[in-house]
Write a protein that binds this DNA or RNA. Sequence first.
DNA 1: GGCTGAAAACCGGCAAGATTGTTTGTTATT
DNA 2: AATAACAAACAATCTTGCCGGTTTTCAGCC
Lengths: 230, 230
Amino acid sequence: MDEISIRVLAQLEPENLVSEGQSWQQRKSIQTRVTILDAAVDCLQTHGYGRTTTQLIAEKAGISRGAMLHHYATKQDLIAAVIDYTVYKRMELFLHGVRALKDSDRIAEMAGIEIFWESLLTREFGAYLELAVAARTDPELAEIFLPKARRYDQTELAEVIRAFPEWANLPEAYALAMDYCNAALQGLLINREIWSEGSHRVLRRFVGQTIAMMLAGDLTLPQAVSSKAG
Amino acid sequence: MDEISIRVLAQLEPENLVSEGQSWQQRKSIQTRVTILDAAVDCLQTHGYGRTTTQLIAEKAGISRGAMLHHYATKQDLIAAVIDYTVYKRMELFLHGVRALKDSDRIAEMAGIEIFWESLLTREFGAYLELAVAARTDPELAEIFLPKARRYDQTELAEVIRAFPEWANLPEAYALAMDYCNAALQGLLINREIWSEGSHRVLRRFVGQTIAMMLAGDLTLPQAVSSKAG
DNA sequence: GGCTGAAAACCGGCAAGATTGTTTGTTATT
DNA sequence: AATAACAAACAATCTTGCCGGTTTTCAGCC
């Protein structure tokens, strides 16, 4: 991974997990925290936000609830840390996929879409989606989730274009393409169990196709913000 | 509303709410059940699936928990009824929007997209989305939700084309357009608080534009299901 | 280098509150 | 008289946060 990607990742890195612990206690603490956060991600992905209890997380992490509450005093503290962790891991996974893409053949537009799609199938994004939906109806969660989610979005926007420099001359089209890709694939993910497998593939190919046309200039973009446009 | 729409609605109509009650008790029972279901929809939309308790629903409905449990013995019974009710109301609202659309000017393609979008902003769809997401991590809920959701999807597919008969000659394109529209707008809805207002409008216009191009035949559709296509 | 008090990591138990389902009772309808 | 609509109280369970106690590590001092 090149140094700029590392810098981008560092920008999102959770604060209490960064310091390369000098002392034994610091290293142990960080290790336990990561174990807890991984367990929390698993619980979110498997049982959803509403059914994720501190008991369950502690069990999956293999420590006692008391020990966990020593590291994260309240559930809210833990969730806040999980948000940071999830956002960080999501970007890490995506950059990893992009790097693999750059090394590979990179066949037309479909490869990018499929990398994107696969990044949505990870347990990290599963946890992220649970938090995003829960934040829609939980003001306290929204307060800590939304700023971090917006920052992730900005970081993603700034980073993906580095992997696809052919968009550099089309900033508006690029911004639209990113939102478009996110919206369509996340919407597909939600309806995954409802729609048929065949629909999935056709839809993903269609999205890739339209994005390729945007890049080629074969689609006229909508007028930018006309504040009264309905 | 024409008779075919009524037939379509009847196909989704919740069983225990249909009978035009002859007796006083039947009418009273149905009325109370509808009050409860409306309250449940409100709770789902406002507090999310995880925080929707029977206590909260009963309070919002203005009756005692005991009375509510007389009509719906368990929470699962209630949720099952809410699913039916939500699916029904969602279709009812959509048909209502489509009918208004048919009477109006129906300017190009954007009107259809905006009708679709507005149907996603209702509390009924808010409740539906909560159930859909919760069903992803709750096997018991999924068991009762998924069959109903799939049936709704089929009904929607069969009904929308009646409002837009110009697609009749393009069945594959039509099926793709429906999934596409659902996926993109639902994905937009999830990210509503994360993205800026300007992005919303541009994205919706873009979706409308691409769908218009599909109709006009200006987009080559992806090959249908090639079972090994990545 | 070894000792000692402080602090950290960790565990188990406890109480307060919330949630669900049952049960018992009252009023109104059939 | 039987049944339905409704209400209120109850028990059982679950979840959270807090507290006391144990073991291990750290920092200062002889």
